[in-house]
Design a protein around this nucleic acid. Sequence first.
DNA 1: GGAATAGTGTCTCTGAGACACTATCTA
DNA 2: TAGATAGTGTCTCAGAGACACTATTCC
Lengths: 243, 243
Amino acid sequence: MNNQEILSSQIYDPSIYKRPNTTVDVVIFTIIDKQLHVLTVKRTEEPFKGMWSLIGGYVDIEKDKNLESTATRKLQEKTGVQTPYLEQFETIGNADRDPRGWSITTVYFALISSEGVELKTGKGTNDIKWSKIEKRKIEEPLAFDHAEILQRCTERLRNKVLYTSLPIHLMPSEFTLSELQKVYEILLGQKIEHKSFRRRMLGADILVEAEGMRHEGRRPAQLYRVKEGHNAHFFIRNLEGAT
Amino acid sequence: MNNQEILSSQIYDPSIYKRPNTTVDVVIFTIIDKQLHVLTVKRTEEPFKGMWSLIGGYVDIEKDKNLESTATRKLQEKTGVQTPYLEQFETIGNADRDPRGWSITTVYFALISSEGVELKTGKGTNDIKWSKIEKRKIEEPLAFDHAEILQRCTERLRNKVLYTSLPIHLMPSEFTLSELQKVYEILLGQKIEHKSFRRRMLGADILVEAEGMRHEGRRPAQLYRVKEGHNAHFFIRNLEGAT
DNA sequence: GGAATAGTGTCTCTGAGACACTATCTA
DNA sequence: TAGATAGTGTCTCAGAGACACTATTCC
């Protein structure tokens, strides 16, 4: 009994239309050595066997109660991270992106601190690594349309940095304002005036002072942590650099 | 033969996972009689037979080259409109939204001028109408999770109105600034200071003066049209009303 | 003329950018 | 001490909000 036959034997079964293949991809961003990185795995199966790709996989309708579960499950499997900042980015579906036929992928992006993350070689993958992003690309070619996805996603991230507090999710639990500013600058690819930055962040009521100071380099700096329950602040005015 | 066994017996075949049902829904907004409306159809099939629903349908992998084609095809079939403002909103996939099982829908929203639109009763639907939106809801109950989708989508639209020029796509080809302001106010659910509004719109370089004036009521008003090729302007500062 | 709508002048206020300044550390 | 990084004071500037004003129409 093939797919088609199964279909027509059921009443109200929507699959009178052949169903596209459905996957979820997760663009997992982090900062390592003052540079933006994305998590990639080497494919162990055709198509694109041996090429690097974003983290992703099929929606498992037995295991996953919704699309976001698929994303968090994938993230968990690869990084052990449980509660990242996770946002749905876009869904791409067309006839060409997968040589096996019409396929749909819902792309999420996650922001995590690289602190304490140990990458796990899961089932079906023998190689996984953080790939450095430069000019919205990584060095290695990516499978499927993942290079385009990465580019658009990096662009979206940069745009959101202009008017949100998203970069706090790339920080470890305690950090200084200078460290946070540095992360903003990495994402934007440009310097920010430090006085404006401090005014903006401290005025947003999203940070609380942590105990103690960071002693590193010269004058010690106040440590902050993200206010409990805080997820995303939207500033009413953009930083410059919007083009 | 269970899922796992099927899996391991097939190489490279993505359908080792049962595929969810995949659809596209389009939230088609327009302004009628100074109120926001959304296009709805009455369902002629189970499930939810006889209930109103958003415009949508299965991805037809024979006809549609990508997801957006599915959306424009649906829009075309129902309204005859060819080139609306169309934006992907979100994708919802879970086990509960459709009684027939795990299903995924990619939701688009479209903004069109109601001027000159004639609704078409297409195949499979015997009733179609513009439903008035009040408090992010319409009067009639909606099938599936469409009420939630409509609510979130209306909310997203309102948010974007605070910092974009999107409402111009709800206007007929020529309009006055007062008419445009009225549409902004409808979407925001609040008054805007008219001087600020004119400064903002005229400063954005997205409108050009059209020939002639609108003579209606008292003093005639300058007609404008959208600058050729213009799609969406992002202001660097929000209107008030952000909460 | 009065009412209504279109359109302007101009003040305040907020927050980003610029940049000089002070503070506190190490070498 | 000098150099580096942390942090402040304060001016300018753009654009939103407020609101009084003028302009043009119909009655």
